[in-house]
Design a protein around this nucleic acid. Sequence first.
DNA 1: CCTGAATGATACCACATTAGTATCATTTGT
DNA 2: ACAAATGATACTAATGTGGTATCATTCAGG
Lengths: 137, 137
Amino acid sequence: MITKHTDYAIRALCEMARNKQSRELFPVAELAEKLKIPRPFLRKLLQILNNKGVLKSYKGQGGGFKLGRPPQRIFVVDLIRIFQGPFKIDKCVLSKDVCPDVRTCLLRKKVVAIEKHMISELKSITIASLLSMKDKS
Amino acid sequence: MITKHTDYAIRALCEMARNKQSRELFPVAELAEKLKIPRPFLRKLLQILNNKGVLKSYKGQGGGFKLGRPPQRIFVVDLIRIFQGPFKIDKCVLSKDVCPDVRTCLLRKKVVAIEKHMISELKSITIASLLSMKDKS
DNA sequence: CCTGAATGATACCACATTAGTATCATTTGT
DNA sequence: ACAAATGATACTAATGTGGTATCATTCAGG
């Protein structure tokens, strides 16, 4: 459900959000070492987030990545969509005639309902909300 | 969420359950042709179901597979577990320190809750219940 | 008792997705 | 100019899913 791409992205964004009072710009090398994520891999992920507007990048010496918007507005569902494509749980069940009549197939109905429930449960979670939990612990 | 293994298994079990008044034993060749599933593949699936007790097999001429228990007691969740392993959505999130403290990680809590919800929604669905829907349509 | 129809077991292959690496080009501060 | 950083992109490796092939075993029927 959550791949390493998304996982790593969440970790990096949390790290950046947590320290954003003291500094805004984080080079990949530093994040990779701190979070123990393979550097070239993390770099690719952050580049993708940059293209999607979640991060903003600065080239050249002293450059790096910074958050493209406040952590309250970075939603985990969006990260999942970016790295894992749109939710489409029911696609597989649609592999026709599990039940011949799709409209009445109980299994399909349930699966679609579960999908909706999942999204609604996840859609309120942001990088900021993840951080706030940590502070309380 | 539901792979072809599970999908095909459900279809085959439904087919057997639907006709079980008239006959109990179904050779793979017949099911494969009727359901348009590649024969050797379906065969492997049914063999697995046999090993798990969902089906019972009979070798030799005139042999085949029959349901190992009434369709009311064949649960879709069990089929998913057989072919796709145990539900373990949270495993990936557990990839340590998405949040450093696992006990308080909001994301993990949510994901685990979603997982439970999924299972509870699915666990009432049996081969029999899928069939009964069809009859109503 | 032999043959053919069936499953049992298992090894293998093809493809897609996920995870990760490598490389060259570009930008920019000193 | 040089070094430190990202941009872009192609490549490789590992894993999972879908499917095939093969040989062994069982067993009903002539």
